[in-house]
């Protein structure tokens, strides 16, 4: 992983510039402070082969502050990217080819997520030694994301607290 200060600089107008990537995936409009969780959701760990740029607490007109993640040389599948909606429902995805945006879209909340959250109910079968993957049903309730354990029915309103390291 490449630290963001290798490739970012604050210009005179207090705007943060993050260097462009040639091809790969840019995840923008991530809620401030959630960039590292986004990497966890995508399974990007220290020691991985991808070049990753992270910018945190970048000034944003719409959001006040936001995070940005850029992954060089990797197009991440829609299904994987949609998991980001769990912690940042307003995130946008840009696919980059030869420094240009080839596709742009918003993340969409997936109806079900498997294997990326751990159930906080210690008595849930998913926390046993059984050969089982966690599975949660995802819904918006007002402006909150609500996830419900498929097995024990436990409801969670802050799923970012329960993201597993993959």
């Amino acid at each position: 992983m490449v630290a963001c200060n290798d490739s970012t600089k604050v210009d005179k107008s207090d705007r943060l510039a993050v260097s462009k990537i040639r091809c790969g995936t840019v995840i923008d409009h991530i809620n401030a402070g959630k960039a590292l969780l986004v990497l966890r959701i995508l399974g990007i760990k220290p020691g991985c082969s991808e070049r990753v740029l992270i910018a945190m607490n970048v000034p944003s007109k719409k959001m006040g502050k936001k995070d940005i993640v850029k992954v060089e040389g990797k197009y991440i599948s829609e299904k994987e990217l949609d998991r980001i909606a769990l912690i940042s429902p307003n995130a946008t995805i840009n696919l980059i080819e030869e420094y240009e945006v080839s596709e742009k879209r918003r993340v969409e909340l997936p109806p079900v997520v498997e294997g990326i959250l751990t159930c906080p109910n210690r008595n849930c079968i998913t926390n046993s030694r059984e050969p089982i993957k966690s599975r949660f049903h995802v819904k918006m309730e007002g402006n909150r994301v609500k996830v419900t354990c498929h097995y024990c029915g436990k409801k969670i309103y802050e799923p970012d607290r329960y993201i597993v390291s993959r």
């Binding site: 109910n121 079968i125 354990c149 498929h150 097995y151 024990c152």
Partner: peptide
């Protein structure tokens, strides 16, 4: 009947 919640669905 099982002590763990969700055991029956599994």
């Amino acid at each position: 009947r099982h002590p763990l919640e969700g055991a029956a669905r599994f």
